[in-house]
Nucleic acid binder design. Structure first.
Length: 540
RNA sequence: GAGGCUGUAGCUCAGUCGGUAGAGCAACGGACUUUUAAUCCGUAGGUCUUGGGUUCGAGUCCCAACAGCCUCACCA
């Protein structure tokens, strides 16, 4: 099947004036005896660390005294130049430093060149003076373009305007960028390009790298919280012979040697529960699941899921754990509990609100949840078809329509109608209710937890009922007989929890679309347009 | 899968009523040893996503395709 991974790179003669000029400089760097693709470069400091050393920059006066500098950034009106002049004869001194990074701004000022370089901790200005760095370094600096990676050795000082600057003494070329960077102020704005060329988005768009590093911190924090609570992380199979544990359509794949149809996993649940049977009393997996469903600002076909199971616990244990996971994650990112969300704010200050399904139903609809006729009437007012539906199903549809969007939260919704949660244990005190909670924030379901069903006969029966209700297309979700066999060996009563990691990261990074927290979200193939080769051949 | 919006220089964007393509940044040449979205002078850069159609004439109007975004559905 013909397919293109990306727009083909044009022939060298067609690549335009920008690349041509960069290639000329590339050649010149080589001619000057430097490696345009660089070598190992040790001993450089993170740029943020250099900014932290600003206090080491001093004014050395002619009379031998050394003065600390005021912070020129503390007051916008402060005139560093005038302050320097007022101190009399002297020169600025500072530590020897080495830094490496990408050139993001470049300015010529006669026999001086200013560049701002960026690493993954921050930006810093460097000053290259012809007479200060010598002819060889100066010739090399003439080959710099925006986007190039360079190393600098020099002293950390301030310019006359007070800007913390590395005064270069020698330069090391680390790598050429053949492509021109996007607009130096606006970066890339086209959503499609930002996602396809995430490397450009990360390198040049403000806050993007920071956001993804924050995601990493959140995930690390979750592992650390769970480890601290005595949970062990495992790695279950991602290729399943039966796609179970959730109601979703799987991706289908195939093993050649075994000649066997396989499904990409849609959930982590069934294997984690097998491990409960095996004696792993506190166990979790944090990993990718795949669902062959539509794409939206809150859905990507592959996403990251956390599932946690605790032997001898119940949904209450999971609720406390959920809150701790989130609170710890916010702390780990160094943020306050009140987080910005678009134009508004989400307050994650613990404890989170806990309310029952029925209470919230009444609060947001004005109809008592046990008023079956009233709920049905309300559903019909909304325009739902209620004919032949179980009262709890009608109630659930109304809840999703009227209540969920109003749950700004964070709020734990407890005790769902049992008939819409067949795989959950019922409350001892009220069998009409299931021991289940979901955590909602900004109308978005972030976590879902149950007191898990461990009766193998009941589980099998419910599987069969569930499968009987599915149409032909979904019937590929077959009974997982081995899972039933596992339960027959005795699974401890347990609490189980699932958290959508991408959605949690969205909330903690003020990202309104899931694609902003997934490095490489799924996109259609590039270059399949009308001019694309092969279009039409593979349509049939 | 359905509907709506969008696609113009490497990037960010203008483009009026249908009349022959514009700016800023980036690039190239020049000036400048403390600039900072540097500034100043000059030069070059276009298959207006693609393919049809209407028209004397289409970036602009119509149809289709492709891609992205939004809403809805499936789903978490």
């Amino acid at each position: 099947m013909p397919s293109e991974q990306a727009k083909p790179i044009p022939a060298p003669e067609d690549r335009g004036i920008h690349e041509a000029s960069r290639r000329e400089k590339l050649a010149k760097i080589g001619a000057l005896g430097h490696d345009p693709w660089g070598q190992r470069f040790d001993g450089h400091s993170a740029i943020a660390a250099l900014q932290g050393r600003a206090g080491e920059v001093k004014l050395q006066l002619a009379d031998g005294r050394t003065l600390d500098l005021p912070d020129p950034k503390a007051d916008a009106a402060f005139d560093f130049r005038a302050w320097l002049a007022a101190q009399g004869q002297g020169e600025l001194v500072g530590p020897k430093v080495r830094a490496a990074g990408r050139i993001v701004l470049l300015r010529d000022a006669g026999k001086l060149k200013f560049a701002n370089i960026r690493d993954w901790t921050g930006d810093i200005q460097i000053l290259i003076g012809k007479s200060q760095v010598g002819d060889d370094n100066w010739a090399l600096a003439q080959c710099f373009d925006l986007g190039d990676l360079i190393g600098v050795d020099g002293t950390l000082r301030r310019t006359k305007t007070g800007e913390l600057t590395i005064f270069a003494e020698s330069l090391t070329f680390l790598s050429k960028s053949i492509e021109p960077p996007p607009d130096k102020h606006h970066g890339l704005s086209d959503t499609e390009q930002r996602q396809r060329m995430r490397y450009v988005d990360l390198a040049y768009n403000e806050g993007v790298l920071e956001r993804f590093l924050k995601r990493t911190k959140i995930v690390q924090s979750i592992r650390s919280t769970l480890g601290g609570e005595g949970f062990v992380e495992i790695e279950g199979p991602t290729l399943h012979s039966v796609a179970g544990g959730a109601a979703a359509r799987p991706f289908i794949t195939h093993h050649n040697t075994l000649d066997m149809q396989l499904f990409m996993r849609i959930a982590l649940e069934l294997h984690l529960k097998r491990l409960l049977v095996g004696g792993m009393e506190r166990v979790y997996e944090l990993g990718r699941v795949y669902r062959n469903e539509g794409i939206s600002p809150r859905h990507n076909p592959e996403f990251t899921m956390l599932e946690v199971y605790q032997a001898y616990g119940d949904y209450g244990s999971m609720m406390d754990l959920t809150e701790k996971i989130i609170v710890d994650a916010i702390k780990a990112t160094g943020q306050p509990f009140r987080l910005p969300w678009g134009e508004s704010t989400i307050d994650f200050t613990p404890p989170f609100t806990r309310a029952t399904y029925d209470e919230l139903f009444f609060e947001h609809t004005g109809v008592k949840a046990d008023d079956t006729a009233g709920v049905k009437a309300l559903a019909e007012t909304i325009g739902f078809d209620t004919a032949g539906k179980h009262p709890d199903v009608i109630k659930s549809e109304v809840f999703e329509e009227k209540v969920e969007d109003a749950l700004i939260g964070p709020v734990f919704v407890l005790d769902y109608p049992a008939s819409i949660c067949p795989l959950t244990k019922r409350k001892k005190s009220n069998p009409a209710l299931a021991e289940r909670f979901e955590l909602f924030v900004e109308g978005m379901e972030v976590a879902n937890a149950y007191t898990e069903l461990n009766d193998p006969d009941l589980q099998e029966q419910l599987f069969r009922t569930q499968l009987a209700g599915q149409n032909e297309e979904d019937s590929m979700a077959k009974m997982d007989h081995d899972f039933i066999r596992a339960l027959r060996h005795g699974m401890p009563p347990a609490g189980g929890l699932g958290i959508g990691i991408d959605r949690l990261v969205m909330l903690l990074t003020n990202s309104q679309t899931i694609r902003d927290v997934i490095l490489f979200p799924l996109l259609r193939e590039e270059g399949r347009g009308a001019r694309g080769a092969g279009r039409g051949d593979d349509e049939a």
